[in-house]
Design a protein around this nucleic acid. Structure first.
Lengths: 339, 339
DNA sequence: TTGTAGGCGTTATCAA
DNA sequence: TTGATAACGCCTACAA
């Protein structure tokens, strides 16, 4: 491996000139610059990461804390991880992936931060009272949170507005003439863990139904039979909101299939269905389903931008809850009150 | 942030003594060691990553090249990524995740290697003629491949023996008395890309059926209707081998459900089904399915071990194809010829 | 058992 | 516009 010294010698200039020619942090004559560039190419020079980090106190690396536990949805995990790494690479950053949970997650974060391995930390999969949040604050490291922890003083957060998403689902169903709405929520464990997107969605769903005087029932997607469970507590059910994983959506459709009701999804006299906040494609079900999907790319790139803003000396504390948008596939009657 | 200098001063020893006390690379008296440790705790000292990397030419970081394209299975991706990061952490290594595909994947790899950011590279999702393989060889960097590229001279590879897995599926079905076997393979795109596990499985399936004089038919899982397609080309179908994604497995079961055949899966006169090489749980289907699953933890930890062996000066070139093992859930009649 | 000191490859300050 | 040179923080021969 050739070093900056070799480049300097070959280009007939000093080391510092090479450094500046490459970083552009001070002006260099056109002629020297091209001599330096030629030498760089000839020697296939690449600045050494360790030396650069030591001298500049910038690593061009950020940590992504993406804890993986039994209830992690693979599709969501993958999509968000991809979005964050993509956004990071767009800004010439690499990503160190930390997959531990709970205490081990905190230990990993403190290790990479306090050894100076990373310039900042992105948090995925946050819960209401997330131990990583006070940790990041204590460490005083640039950071961004995908999700909405309770305690967000001084934190930068980004997420879809799941409350608004739930209200949007209810509103459209109501506009379409539905009056008895059942929610198939996440597995109970997610609420117990306090995953904020799930909690926010469910609460807003109930609030909106109450405010509109609609019948509402709620169940979780731990076991099959969600449709039957909802029907026992709410008669005349005419719409479903599915805030659950891909597989649970399939189970609901299977249940409807047994009675042939799946053929009437979206029909004037049939059931209406909408999926809340999926990170998978709601159009590939049979029948295709309307949805209010999250936007992982937006979440990821916003998180990275918020983070890098702090690295460059900016301030933190900004919460970006972006508006949900509706994706129509015809599973809500009357086109969701708009047709 | 306190440095090794602060620790040395506080402990009343020299810098090198602190270094040695912490690394254990030379003996230190019990008394000084404890004084050093006390100082480390008091100052919350953590060695600086950049400095350590620069001085030691070891980064304790490895790159995981896990290209994400449209056909990537989320569950498999997640499981393997987790396994690799877990194994790396067990060896005090961090993982830089590279998600780009094709040329961009190669560029990322050469960047992190030639800047000296990583000590080695793990490859996931390799295809037969994978451009990353010759690249790694040219770079002369420690590496390990999860999968089996054509050209593996000087490479360390690990994977389940998918050929043997396919033969095992056929053998058990044959032992159970099945004579007409249909394979639902991966989407065509995976074969076109040359993903080795898919190709190896399919070829071995066909070979084994031929050698045993069994009827065999093959289709892909691009579109629903796999069962019907197989039946048009093979009459009297009595067994299925499913080497495909989770969703495609569901579709096959749905198809059988329409005719009520799903109730006879595994029965003496019914259909037999086995899933080849899944990284998802085959027991959660209805009915639960027998399978010959991959072992992502084994693949990941073996890959990391092979890699770190090279970092410590060992040699490369070793191919570990571990034997498949059968997971029984009752979807093959006669218990797979063993009951 | 411990200390001294050179070097790792950059960046950035200070002169020129 | 350019060049010396002092950090950056740690590791590790070499000495004692």
């Amino acid at each position: 491996m050739s070093t900056i010294k070799d480049v300097a010698r070959r280009a007939g200039v000093s080391i510092s000139t090479v450094s500046y020619a490459l970083s552009g942090k001070r002006s260099v004559s056109e002629e020297t610059r091209s001599r330096v560039e030629a030498a760089v190419r000839a020697l296939r020079y690449r600045p050494n990461a360790g030396a650069r980090i030591l001298a500049s106190a910038r690593t061009q690396i950020l940590a992504l804390s993406a804890p993986m536990h039994d209830h992690t949805y693979p599709a969501a995990f993958m999509t968000f991880v991809r979005a964050v790494t993509q956004a990071a690479h767009d800004h010439d950053y690499d990503v160190v992936l930390l997959t531990e949970c709970d205490d081990a997650a905190c230990e990993s974060i403190s290790r990479v931060v306090s050894t100076g391995l990373v310039d900042g930390v992105v948090l995925m999969d946050v819960v209401g009272e997330d131990a990583r949040v006070p940790l990041l604050r204590a460490l005083g490291v640039p950071s961004a949170v995908i999700g909405l922890p309770e305690d967000r003083e001084g934190m930068s957060c980004v997420d879809m507005d799941f409350g608004r998403a739930a209200r949007m689902c209810v509103a459209r169903l109501a506009d379409a003439g539905c009056v008895q709405i059942g929610l198939v929520g996440q597995p109970q464990a997610l609420y117990d863990r306090g995953l904020t997107f799930a909690v926010r969605f469910r609460e807003a769903f109930q609030d909106e139904c109450r405010e509109r005087g609609l019948g509402a029932a709620v169940t979780t997607s731990d076991a099959p039979g969600a449709v039957a469970r909802l029907r026992t507590s709410l008669h005349g059910l005419d719409a479903f909101v599915l805030d659950c994983g891909e597989y649970a959506v399939e189970q609901v459709l299977d249940e409807l299939r047994e009675t042939g009701e799946h053929r009437l999804v979206g029909a004037a006299q049939g059931l209406s269905i909408v999926v809340g906040g999926p990170s998978f494609d709601p159009g590939r079900f049979d029948p295709p389903l309307d949805a209010v999907p999250v936007d992982p790319v937006r979440s990821g790139s916003t998180a990275v931008s918020l983070l890098l803003g702090q690295v460059d000396g900016g301030t933190a504390e900004s919460v970006e809850l972006y508006a949900p948008s509706w994706v129509r596939h015809g599973s809500v009657r009357n086109g969701g009150g708009l047709a």
